[in-house]
Computed example of a mutant assay.
Amino acid sequence: MSVWSMLTGVLSPISEAYKSNQKRKQARESAQAKLSLAKVNNDYRLDLNDDEWEALSKQNEGGTWKDEYVTVIITSPFVLLFLASIASSISGDMTYLNAVNLGIENIKNLGVNLGDLMYVVVLAAVSIKGIGSIRK
Rank of each mutant, 00 (worst) to 15 (best):
A99D: 14
K25F: 10
S36Y: 00
L117P: 09
K129L: 04
I73T: 06
Q22P: 08
L7F: 12
L97M: 08
K108C: 07
L56R: 00
S36I: 01
D67M: 04
S85R: 08
I107S: 05
V3F: 15
L102V: 01
L37H: 04
S5A: 08
L123E: 15
N109Q: 08
M1A: 13
I134C: 05
E16Q: 15
G115C: 05
L123N: 15
D116R: 03
N41Y: 05
D116G: 10
G130H: 04
K136I: 12
L123H: 15
R28F: 14
L35P: 03
V3E: 14
V120D: 02
V79W: 07
K19H: 00
L46M: 09
A31F: 10
K136G: 15
G132D: 06
N113Q: 12
S76E: 07
V121H: 06
G132H: 04
W53V: 12
T95N: 13
Q32W: 07
L56F: 01
S36D: 11
D116S: 09
S12P: 05
T75Q: 07
W4D: 15
L46E: 05
Y119R: 08
N42E: 09
K34E: 00
K25L: 14
E68T: 11
Q22L: 14
A17Y: 01
M118E: 15
P13G: 12
N49L: 07
N113R: 09
A124I: 07
I73S: 10
E68L: 10
S36P: 00
L37I: 05
L46Q: 01
L37G: 06
L11C: 02
E105M: 11
G9H: 01
K25W: 10
N41P: 03
L37A: 14
G130E: 06
V40C: 09
N60I: 12
V72E: 06
T95V: 00
N42S: 06
L114K: 05
E61F: 00
L56H: 03
R45E: 13
L37N: 11
Q32E: 14
S5G: 00
V10H: 11
D43H: 07
T71K: 13
R24F: 08
L123C: 13
V10G: 05
M6G: 05
E61H: 06
I107K: 01
N109D: 03
L46K: 03
N98D: 13
S12Y: 04
R24E: 02
